[in-house]
Write a protein that binds this DNA or RNA. Structure first.
Length: 922
RNA sequence: AGGACUAUAGCUCAGUUGGUUAGAGCGCUACCUUGACAUGGUAGAGGUCCCCAGUUCGAAUCUGGGUAGUCCUACCA
């Protein structure tokens, strides 16, 4: 074995082996456990959020697989309609063409080509993470099978009246030329203006003043509204105003919606271009005049001078023209929320079109109930509130998109404007008796990507067929995802699955926090703070990192800033930490309900942890290979105190890990493992094994007992750790397992260690604590007094109990080795106590005679610090016990505990003060 | 505007039902290449648990009110 752990070669070798051998496929067990991966964008690449979530899923999957569950981790990718289409369109643009030039069929063909070409990236990256996904069952949302499920769902929902087609205002993306759902609109505050315009009353005496942030929509105004009880305006209700620039007259109407306090209390109403105005238009039967085109330029409904102008150009012109007419009263600065498309970034227009909708209100009821009655539980629980509040006010879901990449809507139109929903043109003709000479044209639109994702848990298992897999693996066990897609995906999955399967899609939703950079900023390309999980695994030099972060930047200034910041943070690039270290870092940071600031320092610590494990294994193998380690169980052995103790601690660790995983506390699980392996197995147990292994006089039973324990505890620890660090554990386990009497082609399919209560040995724990106390006490004196580490000390013990005496007798060799002692013995009765530095272990006094090696003043200072601490503590407890109501009201055991504590501390204090006296008299 | 979450060591974070001498990792200081590991070992320093009030014998922990930050939802033209 190398002196340091080298992950790179090990990782690829083992992953290929596992996959080739089919270890990832479900096998065995009556109990099933399944997770459906949130399908990543097929042409995307892995980011830290993926890395984090996949690490968690893989730990759960490996844990259950090892526990003997029939375990499925379903893998697949999403066609990601808008995102993918945009990428390919950009490529076409770069090549000097466009999708419209290609035509629909050829364009879709191009997208498929792009999918074939780049679709492997993310799945390769998933493999690098060690994710034990069942690749033999890989699915894609546009596979024939899944497409069939999509069509089936659409047709059935339509026939049940839960999908309908309607004309209403939608969120229109003028750059992408498609409707999008309300979830895909991001509203953020931006600086804008509030313009006040005069609308003259028809008839010429006076005017109303309206305030607007969007002057261009005035071309489509069909009313002015005031509050019905606003005394300033009640007399005008029912009259009309002459809408400037248009020559139209529009009524003044009354509506509660108007806030008399805001602006002038008069609102211009544009039902075709504003959601609230639309509602009011419907209430009052107002005409709806659409003045925009698909591109958000002014259309022919508007007066001639404005036709063909871009909306923002039109805005300027209208303000200028109104000003010229003396109708612009004032312009105020105003911050407003501007809705932008989450993909395109352009301002979204409320736009009147015909679209397909899912009646989400009807489907939300059972979905709310499933969470209320606990059929589905969110971890952490507070996300349930978020879910409820959204579900209770859910809007109908606009599912049609004016794109070419996606599941085409299974509806056909005839020239008379009738439409028919069915599986195919033939099916539609047959069902509705449409003659062959009647032309039918399929709907041009495709479905929202989330429509197919909503079916993911059951469509991947073969639905609408009643497959065996559906029976076994559905509902799935847990969904692991970020809170940002609870509405997009989780809620819709719950609705769809309940409707079509009459069962929940999953029992638990584990909601992870967001991975942010070390300053708590969201990672984004434009901020240039993105970390690629693969770079943390393989490492990257600074030049490549800078290049990667600044590639494709539109603004050179931004690129410069990113470069400077990157060079400052990573002057030497990023080291290769390996997958296991990265994964363990994710676990250690995964406390629930909290975003994660990813600090690069953490991963280094866990890389070191890998190295520690590696070297511990080297030590164990060095002492066990080619030796009898009790693998066949034939020879007699005896267990030392240390052996019994580490076995006992292993059980406790196993219990702790199980507890943590049951609660999705990966941070606790990782911490328990880290502490056990490093602070107990390596720091203490391996050291305690040395006096046995290196002693010429050790009995063969003792040697065997120690070797046996060394190897078996290591072997079990590797299995315990495997779900979190799959690669290093497999690599070491292959060599270690046979020595521990275990065989198998892979650690992956070995049983997961479970705690054996009978092996918990509290006496051994107490004895080791004593041993540690004595050693640490002596080390402390050595460290504080600057006694050279090589100098062997003579130590005297004083005031010991019978138990102390027997403990010393049994452990003297360990003390000598670990504390570097020449001799350790009891202070003889009647012998003058030498002036010493003192450590206390309970009542036992550990004396290091000062002779000439200890500095008198240094020891006095050290004792001073100790006694000061004790003084404070004694005073604190005395205060408590002198409080009558504490003694009276606190539970007796608490009071007794305080009394014991006080006594112990007082004794300790007295002893140290005595020592202080003796030294002073020197 | 409504709601959720967060505030603990220089930094990143743990802290179960109120009773701990408030912990870990990183960083820092000193010493050490001892036959697994310097990606290491030993020892040490470092905290007004955001503030105020309350409940309680007792509060990092419970309640109320602030302050600061993050996020979600809705939105006034």
């Amino acid at each position: 074995m190398d002196k340091t752990f080298q992950p790179a070669e090990i990782e690829t070798r083992w992953y290929q082996e596992w996959e080739a051998q089919g270890y990832f496929a479900p096998q065995g067990g009556d109990r099933a456990y399944s997770i459906m991966i949130p399908p990543p964008n097929v042409t995307g690449s892995l980011h830290m959020g993926h890395g984090f979530q996949e690490a968690i899923m893989d730990a759960l999957i490996r844990y259950h697989r090892m526990r003997g569950y029939n375990t499925l981790w379903q893998v697949g990718t999403d066609h990601a309609g808008i995102a993918t289409q945009m990428v390919v369109e950009r490529q076409l643009e770069a090549a000097g063409t466009s999708r419209h030039e290609l035509g629909r069929d050829e364009f879709v063909q191009k997208v498929w080509e792009w999918k074939e070409q780049s679709g492997g990236t993310i799945t390769r990256q998933l493999r690098r993470l060690g994710a034990s996904l069942d690749w033999s069952r890989e699915r894609f949302t546009m596979d024939p099978g899944l497409s069939e499920a999509v069509q089936e769902v659409f047709i059935r929902l339509y026939k049940e009246g839960l999908i309908y087609r309607g004309q209403r205002l939608v969120n229109w993306d003028p750059a992408l030329h498609t409707a999008i759902s309300d979830l895909e609109v991001i509203s953020e505050e931006e600086q804008g203006h509030l313009w006040h315009f005069s609308y003259p009353l028809a008839g010429g005496e006076g005017h109303l003043t309206v305030a607007t942030t969007r002057p261009e929509t005035m071309l489509g105004d069909t009313a002015v509204a005031v509050h019905p009880e606003d005394e300033r305006y009640t007399h005008l209700i029912g009259r009309t105003v002459a809408l400037p620039l248009t020559g139209r007259e529009i009524p003044v109407i009354a509506d509660d919606y108007v806030d008399p306090e805001f602006g002038t209390g008069c609102v211009k109403i544009t039902p075709a271009h504003d959601f609230n105005d639309y509602e009011m238009g419907v209430r009052h039967g107002l005409p709806m005049i659409n003045v925009l085109t698909d591109d958000a330029t002014i259309n022919d409904e508007a007066p001639e001078p404005y036709r063909g102008l871009d909306r923002f150009e039109a805005r300027k012109r209208i303000v200028a023209d109104l000003d010229a007419l003396g109708l612009l009263e004032k312009t105020e600065h105003h911050t407003l929320k501007v809705p932008r498309g989450d993909r395109s970034g352009v301002v979204i227009e409320p736009y009147l079109t015909r679209q397909w909708y899912v009646d989400a209100r009807a489907m939300a009821g059972p979905a709310i109930e499933a969470v209320e009655n606990g059929s589905i539980q969110f971890v952490p629980k507070n996300y349930e509130n978020m879910y409820f509040s959204w579900m209770r006010e859910i809007q109908d879901w606009c599912i049609s998109r004016q794109l070419w990449w996606g599941h085409r809507i299974p509806a056909w139109y005839d020239d008379a404007g009738n439409f028919y929903v069915g599986a195919s043109e033939e099916a539609v003709r047959k069902e509705h008796g449409i003659a062959a000479d009647v032309a039918l044209r399929q709907d041009d639109d495709v479905l929202d990507t989330w429509f197919s994702s909503a079916l993911w848990t059951f469509s991947t298992l073969g639905w609408p067929e009643e497959t065996e897999e559906l029976k076994i693996f559905h509902p799935s066990s847990v969904l692991v995802t970020g809170f940002d897609i609870i509405f997009f995906w989780v809620a819709r999955m719950i609705m769809m699955t309940l409707h079509f399967r009459q069962e929940v899609p999953f029992h638990t939703v584990y909601v992870t926090g967001l991975i942010r950079d070390e300053e708590g900023q969201k990672m984004s390309k434009s901020k240039g703070n993105v970390l690629d999980p693969i770079d943390l695994i393989d490492g990257i030099d600074i030049e490549s990192l800078v290049k990667k972060r600044t590639a494709g930047m539109m603004q050179p200034r931004l690129a410069k800033r990113i470069e400077t910041a990157t060079r400052k943070q990573f002057p030497d690039g990023i080291a290769a930490y390996g997958t296991d270290a990265l994964r363990f870092t994710f676990y250690s940071l995964a406390s629930t309900g909290r975003d994660i600031k990813f600090d690069i320092g953490r991963i280094e610590g866990f890389r070191n942890f890998c190295n520690k494990i590696w070297n511990a294994a080297r030590y164990v193998l060095m002492n066990c290979e080619n030796e009898d380690c009790g693998a066949d169980g034939s020879a007699d052995y005896s267990l030392s105190l240390a052996d019994r103790w580490i076995i006992s601690r292993l059980q406790e660790t196993e219990a702790e890990v199980a507890r943590a995983l049951a609660a999705y506390r990966f941070d606790h699980a990782s911490q328990a493992l880290y502490e056990f392996i490093w602070n107990e197995y390596c720091d203490w147990y391996l050291e305690l094994s040395k006096p046995v292994l290196w002693d010429q006089d050790s009995s063969s039973e003792a040697l065997l007992g120690t070797r046996r324990t060394l190897i078996r505890v290591l072997e079990a620890s590797l299995r315990l750790l495997h779900p979190f660090m799959p690669f290093i554990t497999e690599e070491i386990w292959q060599t270690v397992a046979p020595l521990a009497g275990k065989r198998g082609p892979t650690i992956m399919l070995q049983p997961y260690p479970t705690a054996d209560d009978k092996a918990v040995d509290s006496a051994a724990n107490a004895d080791i604590e004593w041993l540690k106390g004595v050693i640490v006490g002596i080390r402390n004196i050595r460290g504080e007094m600057n006694i050279p580490p090589g100098k062997a000390l003579t130590v005297l013990l004083k005031n010991g109990s019978e138990q102390d005496k027997s403990r010393l007798e049994q452990n003297a060799p360990f003390l000598r080795k670990l504390a570097r002692l020449e001799q350790i013995s009891w202070l003889q009765d009647g012998v003058e106590e030498p002036v010493s530095a003192t450590a206390l272990v309970g009542d036992l006094e550990v004396l290091v005679p000062m002779a000439d090696l200890i500095d008198r003043d240094a020891e006095l200072e050290r004792l001073g610090r100790e006694t000061e601490k004790l003084h404070k503590e004694v005073a604190r407890i005395e205060g408590k016990l002198n409080n009558a109501s504490f003694v009276e009201k606190a539970p007796a055991e608490v009071v007794a505990k305080e009394r014991d504590k006080l006594q112990a501390q007082q004794q300790a204090l007295a002893k140290l003060q005595e020592q202080e006296q003796r030294i002073r008299q020197m």
